[in-house]
Design a protein around this nucleic acid. Sequence first.
DNA 1: TTAGGTGTGTAGCACTTGCTACAGGGGGTG
DNA 2: CACCCCCTGTAGCAAGTGCTACACACCTAA
Lengths: 179, 179
Amino acid sequence: MAPRDEQRERVLARLADHLLAIGLARSSLRDLARAAGVSDRMLLYYFADKAEVLAAACERVASGVAGRLGEAFPAGTRLPMAGLLRGAAALTTDPAMRPFMRLWVEIVAAAARGEAPFPAIARQVLDSFLAWVDAHLDPQGDPDPAALAALVVATIDGLALVDICRDDDLVDRAAARLG
Amino acid sequence: MAPRDEQRERVLARLADHLLAIGLARSSLRDLARAAGVSDRMLLYYFADKAEVLAAACERVASGVAGRLGEAFPAGTRLPMAGLLRGAAALTTDPAMRPFMRLWVEIVAAAARGEAPFPAIARQVLDSFLAWVDAHLDPQGDPDPAALAALVVATIDGLALVDICRDDDLVDRAAARLG
DNA sequence: TTAGGTGTGTAGCACTTGCTACAGGGGGTG
DNA sequence: CACCCCCTGTAGCAAGTGCTACACACCTAA
């Protein structure tokens, strides 16, 4: 790997942490550069522009989460919808996942207003969620497993959204009613 | 009403339309002023600062949507969860509601990073949703109707979130599997 | 008539934003 | 040695940000 790419990799790990902690909107190029331990001038040497920085960092965050999801649920086993919902809800309402869910909502919000490159990023992250659910969901004869998976993902994301607005235990009680 | 408050009212209606069309992040004070047909100097005469402008405009948007929800479902009738989910999903995936759902996600994203005054706004809008669902939901003996309502709201919001990321009919197919 | 409060336009300040021009260090190759 | 290209720091630009100082017209009350 070229040294430039090595530095990109090193920087990306730090950027991912920073995005999870701070979020998209509060991250200027100078902030990102400071978090990555380089100058803003250098960030724009490793990446073409700010959009590419954010895209790469978001991708990095998403692949980290995908990896954690993969570990949490053993491959090959399939659950019916109710069970998968409960399991996934337990994962995503875990405090450790909260920074990611916040970032995820922010990505979707940016995608909603068409701000490049977020529509593509949001689509990609969502599809990776859908694929994960699809691989662990026993559709039990449903003729449209993809739609069923979408419903699971929507429910999980919706719980995360409500969780952002309320700091009491309402979401936990709602999750207990799944299935 | 003082003339200053009259002007505030006139301006708010235009600001609400602008927010629905453009969104929060792309709205600078000068943009908002232009949309309202006044100077930025005057906006800060009617309102204390930008946060108050946005708070008032968001509140206006939300009360408009609350009104539409109230019209769509007759007061006094209660549906079991499955039926209410289907009805609410039909409402919120309606193209006419899409601008609001996008703005809603943006509000939650701002709330997620703690940016005043959005945590309070998000909480307030969510609670009005919860109250609406609570008033139309037949809990059928569930010991925690509020949690059930939260699950309904979460599912609806989650579908809207997925809808932002995909432009195909996946969400419609998922909504068809509700209940 | 004068004093004072109300409403409004002009101009601009201090700051942040993404991005770039320029110069120079440092190491490999002829 | 000389050359050149990869890397990196300094400085700064043009645009946009929220917000404010100031002046001025207008109306009302003493």
